[in-house]
C-alpha cells in the first residue's frame, strides 16, 4: 500500500451520477508481476457486471481488492462515492486505518469459489454470525432475516445442518444467504460455480438469476460460464493482461466482439465446451 499522501484523487465523488463502484487508475503488483495495470472501471448502482477472461488476467483480483483482501499499489477505489482503502487526511488521501476500513467493508458482500462456510456452525448460525456480532442485531431479528434468506435460496429445510452434511451447491446457496444477511450494497461473486459438480450448477445460478430479477443490488461477478453471463449481465468486461480489453452489452460482446483477443478467447471457450 502506498504510504505517501495521494493528492491528485478527489476525496469524495460528488454529483448526480456517482457510480456505486469506481476503480481509478488502480495498479496491483505481486513482485515484478503486474496483475492490474492502471485499471479504470465504473459500476453503476443496480448494475450487474460480469468479468470474463483467461486465467491470470487479473479478474479475480478486481473482486478481492474490492473486498479489501488485497492491498492496493496505486490508484484509488471508490465505493458509493467514498474511497475504500484510503481516507481523507494530510490534505489528500492517506491509507485508511482499521476503523475506516471496517466501516467501508460493511458496503460489500462476497461469495467465494470454495464457499468458505464456517464448518463448526450450522447453516443458520453461519447466516446469523455477522448480523448478530457485527451489525449488533437482536438474535430474534437476525434469525428471522436469516430464515427468510435461507427460504429464498431454497435451504430453509437444511438450516440446522453443518456444512459437512451439505452438497457443494447447497453450501454455496447458504454462502449467498450469509453474504446477503449483511445487507451489502455491492455483492461480489468470485467463480461461485467453478468448484461445483455440473449437475448442481443450475441451483446456484438460479438463485443469482432471482437476485438480479428481484433486487436492485449492484453486483460484480467473475465466471467461466459464458451462457450464464450472457443471460443476466447488464455489461460484460473482457480482461486481458491486467486491463479491460473490451467491454459492452452481453449481446454485443458475445455476438460481435471487436478485438482480436476477445474473438480468440471466445472461440477457444466455445471449442472447449
Amino acid at each position: 500500500m502506498t504510504k505517501e499522501t495521494l493528492s491528485d484523487f478527489p476525496l469524495e465523488l460528488e454529483g448526480a451520477d456517482v457510480p456505486m463502484v469506481r476503480f481509478s487508475k488502480v495498479t496491483k503488483r505481486y513482485g515484478d508481476l503486474t496483475v492490474l495495470d492502471s485499471l479504470d472501471l465504473d459500476v453503476a448502482e443496480g448494475e450487474m457486471v460480469t468479468i470474463i477472461g483467461p486465467s491470470g488476467s487479473g479478474k479475480t483480483t478486481v473482486l478481492r481488492m474490492l473486498m479489501t483482501l488485497e492491498t492496493i499499489n496505486e490508484g484509488v477505489i471508490y465505493v458509493d462515492g467514498k474511497p475504500l482503502t484510503h481516507m481523507p487526511g494530510n490534505g489528500g488521501l492517506v491509507p485508511a486505518d482499521n476503523r475506516y476500513l471496517r466501516k467501508m467493508r460493511a458496503n460489500i458482500g462476497m461469495c467465494f469459489q470454495h464457499f468458505n462456510l464456517f464448518p463448526h456452525m450450522t447453516a443458520i448460525e453461519n447466516c446469523m454470525e455477522g448480523p448478530v456480532h457485527v451489525l449488533g442485531l437482536p438474535k430474534r431479528e437476525a434469525r428471522e432475516r436469516s430464515e427468510e434468506l435461507l427460504e429464498m435460496v431454497g435451504m430453509a429445510d437444511k438450516r440446522d445442518q453443518h456444512p459437512s452434511r451439505l452438497s457443494g451447491g447447497q453450501q454455496q446457496r447458504v454462502a449467498i444467504a450469509r453474504a446477503l444477511a449483511m445487507r451489502p450494497k455491492v455483492m461480489l461473486f468470485d467463480e461461485v460455480t467453478s468448484a461445483l459438480d455440473p449437475e448442481v450448477i443450475g441451483e446456484v445460478t438460479n438463485v443469482i438469476r432471482r437476485l438480479v430479477a428481484e433486487h436492485n443490488l449492484t453486483m460484480l461477478m467473475v465466471t467461466h460460464q459464458m451462457g450464464f453471463a450472457k443471460d443476466i449481465s447488464d455489461r460484460v468486461c473482457f480482461f486481458f493482461g491486467g486491463r479491460i480489453e473490451e467491454q459492452g452489452k452481453p449481446e454485443d460482446l458475445f455476438g460481435n466482439p471487436q478485438r482480436e483477443r476477445t474473438q480468440q478467447f471466445l472461440s477457444a471457450v466455445k471449442e472447449a465446451s
Partner: peptide, 20 residues
C-alpha cells in the same frame, strides 16, 4: 478461506480468532 470469509463478513479480529 476462513480468514477471508471472516473479513468479508466484517467480523472483528477478536471475534475472528475466538469464534472462527
Amino acid at each position: 478461506g476462513q480468514w477471508e470469509a471472516s473479513l468479508a463478513l466484517n467480523l472483528s479480529p477478536a471475534r475472528t480468532y475466538f469464534r472462527i
